[in-house]
Amino acid sequence: MTFWLTCSPAPLLLSLQVAGVVLVLFLVAGIALGYALSQPIPLRGLLDALVSLPLVFPPIAIGFFLLMLFGRHGVIGGPLHAWIGWDLVFSFPALVVAAFIAGLPLVVKPIQSAIEGSARDLIEVSHTLGKGRLATLFLVVIPIIRRHIVAGLTLGVGRSFGEVGITLMLGGNLLGSTETLSLAIYNQVLDGNFDCATRLSLLLGLLSLGLFLLLRWLGRAG
């Protein structure tokens, strides 16, 4: 046990908190976006491109653009600071935004392809039987693709644990405040503390594996 306690548990707790919040966000936004993108909605191509962007765009560059956008002098961050005195960058919400953006395509894409592949006919049947889009989502889509939802959530939350680039730019890597588990490993390596970096890396690996097994079990049990 002392092996693990030589490093501060704060980054671990912070990462778990971020993962918990993004899990809820993924559950809502991931399903909603996956469902929307599988329907013939206006501006579907643009929305699809925006959601998929983090898959192909370098995270550090995304983090930089978000910093420009949400910084105190940014297009969105400026008015927010001026009107309500709230700053997103270098705060807990910044970590959540970073993890959310990085993991979103990994949640949305499996859900979208599952709906397009196996639920489209059933959605149409539901509509002909008098059900609207929301009722169809809850009565047909979610029960049918629940395993794909679980797979997407696993990938998304796993990605949020490992997220560094966007988190570094938007969260600021402030010790004791926005230092997530991945950033803590990075910081320990920079400080030459390889023992602690090894422990934290093993911890991160076990956490991801545990999450994977848990969500897979939930998917099968469902």
Partner: peptide, 20 residues
């Protein structure tokens, strides 16, 4: 008129039964 308001009984070729 959206599909859900036409009250059409549609039997698909593969029947498209709800598997769950």
């Amino acid at each position: 008129l959206p599909s859900r308001k036409r009250w059409v009984g549609l039997l698909f070729q593969d029947y498209a039964l709800f598997p769950h």
